[in-house]
Amino acid sequence: MTLTEQLNQDMKEAMKKKDKERLSVIRMVKASLQNESIKLGKDTLSEDEELTILSREVKQRNDSLQEFKSAGRADLVEKLETEINILQEYMPKQLSNDELEAIVQTTIQEVNATSKKDMGLVMGAIMPKVKGKADGSQINRLVQKHLN
């Protein structure tokens, strides 16, 4: 089942259960997917493209969450946390720290990276492997740690 099909099915279920928050998030994701397909001039998006959009939505909310926390807006923090939890249901299972460490070390060896100058090369090789399964800033920290 594609992401769009899953979203349609979950949207119907949210309507039946009168779950306004879930319905709102699902509609927003569907709109983002549709906007992207229009922008790319395609009828359907690939799984990779759908995952990119979903990751972008989660990242935007996480960024906003940090801003609202620092501003002391507890009401908005709670709403965003709920939205993030709903979006996470559609994301692939996140990699553990140990799994990420192994991928980072393997990739560093594959590209023969020796210093921080090779950071871009390593990040460019890692990101396609972990797309949607790990946060880019977390990977960045691990790569920096191993390139010291």
Results as ranks from 00 to 15, higher is better:
40 L>A: 13
104 V>C: 03
125 A>S: 06
6 Q>E: 15
81 E>M: 07
81 E>Y: 06
73 R>P: 04
114 T>I: 13
2 T>E: 09
91 M>P: 05
134 A>R: 02
90 Y>G: 01
5 E>F: 12
130 V>W: 03
70 S>L: 06
94 Q>N: 10
44 T>R: 08
112 N>I: 05
102 A>F: 12
100 L>M: 05
61 R>S: 13
98 D>V: 14
12 K>Y: 10
136 G>T: 08
15 M>R: 10
71 A>H: 05
115 S>N: 10
105 Q>T: 11
135 D>R: 05
143 V>T: 01
26 I>V: 14
128 P>A: 15
113 A>S: 03
145 K>A: 10
120 G>Q: 03
85 N>G: 13
63 D>L: 14
26 I>Y: 00
2 T>R: 05
92 P>G: 02
130 V>R: 02
96 S>L: 06
131 K>Q: 12
127 M>T: 07
11 M>N: 10
82 T>P: 06
7 L>F: 04
71 A>V: 09
15 M>L: 15
93 K>W: 04
101 E>Y: 02
7 L>K: 04
46 S>T: 12
61 R>Q: 11
22 R>G: 01
145 K>V: 07
54 L>S: 01
108 I>D: 02
127 M>Y: 03
80 L>A: 06
56 R>A: 12
118 D>S: 07
50 E>C: 13
142 L>R: 03
119 M>Q: 05
133 K>D: 01
25 V>K: 00
142 L>M: 14
52 T>F: 06
60 Q>V: 15
103 I>E: 04
36 E>C: 09
79 K>P: 05
117 K>G: 09
84 I>V: 08
77 V>C: 05
19 D>H: 11
18 K>I: 10
43 D>R: 12
109 Q>C: 07
75 D>A: 08
72 G>R: 04
104 V>R: 01
65 L>K: 05
42 K>T: 06
83 E>R: 08
55 S>E: 14
12 K>P: 11
64 S>G: 10
35 N>K: 01
135 D>Q: 00
45 L>W: 04
127 M>I: 10
89 E>D: 14
115 S>W: 07
45 L>I: 09
129 K>F: 02
73 R>D: 14
93 K>P: 07
65 L>T: 03
86 I>E: 01
35 N>Y: 05
113 A>R: 00
37 S>Y: 02
70 S>M: 11
40 L>H: 08
18 K>Y: 08
63 D>E: 11
10 D>G: 11
14 A>M: 07
28 M>S: 15
58 V>M: 06
83 E>Q: 09
91 M>D: 03
111 V>K: 08
117 K>F: 05
92 P>R: 00
4 T>E: 14
111 V>H: 03
6 Q>V: 11
62 N>V: 10
38 I>Y: 05
9 Q>F: 12
29 V>Q: 01
144 Q>L: 13
41 G>C: 03
16 K>H: 13
113 A>Y: 01
52 T>K: 09
24 S>M: 14
62 N>M: 10
76 L>K: 10
100 L>A: 00
22 R>T: 11
57 E>M: 15
131 K>Y: 09
27 R>E: 03
32 S>G: 15
129 K>H: 03
143 V>Q: 04
119 M>S: 09
16 K>L: 14
9 Q>G: 11
91 M>I: 02
144 Q>H: 13
